[in-house]
Each structure stands twice: as C-alpha cells, then as structure tokens.
Amino acid sequence: MPLTTDAKGVFPIAPTPFFDDGSIDVSSIDRMMDFYLGCGSTGVTVLGQLGEASKLEHAESIDVAARVIARAGNLPVVVGVSAPGFAAMRALTQDVMAKGAAGVMIAPPNTLRTDDQIVTYYRQAVEAIGPDVPFVLQDYPLTFSVQMTPSVIRRIVQDLPSCVMLKHEDWPGLEKISALRAFEQDGSMRHISILCGNNGLFLDYEMERGADGANTGYCFPDMLCDVVRLTEEGKREEAHDLFDAHLPLLRYEQQPGVGLAVRKYVLMRRGILSSAAQRKPAAAMSAQARQEVDHLLGRLGRRDRRAAGLVG
C-alpha cells in the first residue's frame, strides 16, 4: 500500500547491517525486521542518512531495500533516495517502487539557500521520480544546512500533492510543528503526516505539539513505540517518565560522528545485529566510549528492563 498522509506511530530508521569485512549481513536484516514487527512499529525507513546509503552500490541498495520489503509484512517501507543528481534518484525510485516500497524520502542538497530554490528543487525532484510516487520531505537543517521555514514547507505541500509526510528534524523545532498544524486548522495547508527524527530528542513534547510519531533510528525503537502509545492514551506522565529514563542514552547516541557506532553497538548487544561494523570509511568506537555506553546501559537497566543485562 502506498504511504499516505494518515501515517502515524513509529517508523524506525533501519541501519544497514554489515559483517566485519564490509559485506552485507542479510540475516541481521531479517532479525532486525522481525524485531521491528514485534515491538509495535507501524512502518520502517531504509537507506536513510545513517543507513550508510552513500556507501552502497546501486545494486546493493536495491537488494537491501528488497530484503526489507519482503520481510516487512504489512508494514509500509520508505526508501531514502536522496542523490546528487536526479538521474540516480529516479533510477533508485523506480527500482524500489517496483519492489513494493510504499514511498521514498528526499533530503535537500546543501547548496539550497533561498525559499524559491528549495521549492524549485522539490518540484524538479517530483518531475524526475513521477507525481504518483508518495514522498517524505526531510527537514534536517543541522545536517543539510538548508533552512525550511513553515511557509516554505506549506508551499511544497500545497504545490506537490505527492508530498505526504514531513520528517521533522529541526532544532529547536517545537514551534514549527505548532505553526504547521495551525496552517492546517486555518485551511491554508492540507493535512500531512509529521513524524520526528533527530534521534527522538524532543519526541515527548513533539507529540504534544501535534506530531504523529517518530521516524528515527534510536537503538530502543520499542521505547519510542511505547512513548507514542502512552501519549495517545493520555498517560502523559508515564510517557515522560519512560522518555526521561532513556534521555541520557538518546543524547549520547545523537553525537555527530560517533552516533551510528553507538547505535550499532547497542543493537548488537541486544542481539539484533551480528556485528557493530560500519562500511568504510568509518570511525570505530574507542574503548572509553564503549565503557561510557555500557555505563549508560547499566543505569538505564535499573529503570527499563529492556536494557538490563546488556553491559558488555
């Protein structure tokens, strides 16, 4: 089924599992997808920024996406197709949609500076991939250096019906969510799904501002599912208590450069990945960093049993 504006819940950003020699670990893909299905995920995104997509050949990207889609059951799978040029974006989009992807995610190139440049880029991207392909607009200025105001997002949403979701990763960004939902209420923008990334650092209050859930790769996506569920059930303090217990590890994992290594290390400790390996070029965790993560896991285990017994 194609991705729609009604999407909500948690779409984990899947890492790409590798063996130590850099080859793709398909057994870990299967195990990871089974875990996502079992913990309450409502979708999944593959080949995102921290899925090491830029390190894959085109054929490998298709193989990884196809494996995820085949294992996803009824979960919609979004595939990151961001590329320096539209030819590569179009080719990857056509191939993954043919495999059964629900939609694609497009991040802006860091060369865009003006509002008109941003809007024009997305118009041209839709021309390249086709107006029938649902797409996720990724707004992550901390990484891409592209500033999208609420008004620019509204222009994209209104001009391009195939834009069905915003991956919101601005920081600070709570007021942006409120502004977008206010546009919907006054009728100046149609409704779209808003799922939040940035490792979920502000998910507790983002949900209260009107976000529909999370679209990020934190190493405890089951916690994200619980926070979304508790919020929807009106159990505000319970949701905040659980979120607060994870916040130190969330913060540590969000560090630029080392974040993916931390994420893969914890997923390996949880038995989801066979190896914490990244494909080169990559920076490995230092022994001191592993000790710090183990310390965080030990402290988290006192408040969330899912982290108990994971210390290496």
Rank of each mutant, 00 (worst) to 15 (best):
I129W: 10
P108I: 00
T149K: 00
Y121A: 07
R154D: 12
I118V: 15
M105E: 11
Y121E: 02
F144P: 00
R113I: 13
C163D: 02
G130Q: 06
S151R: 09
D139T: 02
L160Q: 02
V146A: 09
P141C: 11
P134F: 10
P141V: 04
L112H: 03
F135W: 04
G130P: 01
I106T: 04
E127S: 15
V126C: 15
D139C: 07
L112C: 05
D132Y: 01
P150E: 02
V157R: 04
D159S: 09
I153S: 09
R155T: 13
E127R: 08
P131M: 00
M165I: 03
G103M: 01
L166P: 06
P141R: 06
Q117K: 07
V157N: 03
D116L: 08
V157P: 09
Y122W: 06
V136A: 12
V104P: 05
L166T: 08
Q117T: 09
F144Y: 13
I129G: 11
I153H: 01
D132L: 03
Q117P: 09
L166I: 14
S145W: 09
T143L: 15
L160C: 04
T111Q: 05
P134E: 11
F135M: 12
A102T: 05
T114W: 01
G103L: 00
S145G: 09
G130T: 05
T114Y: 08
T120Q: 14
D116E: 15
A128I: 04
D115S: 12
T149I: 03
T111S: 13
D132R: 05
V136G: 10
P141H: 07
M105V: 01
D139W: 00
L137E: 00
I156A: 11
D132K: 07
L160W: 07
M165C: 15
L137V: 04
T111H: 02
R123Q: 14
T114P: 06
I156C: 12
Q124L: 13
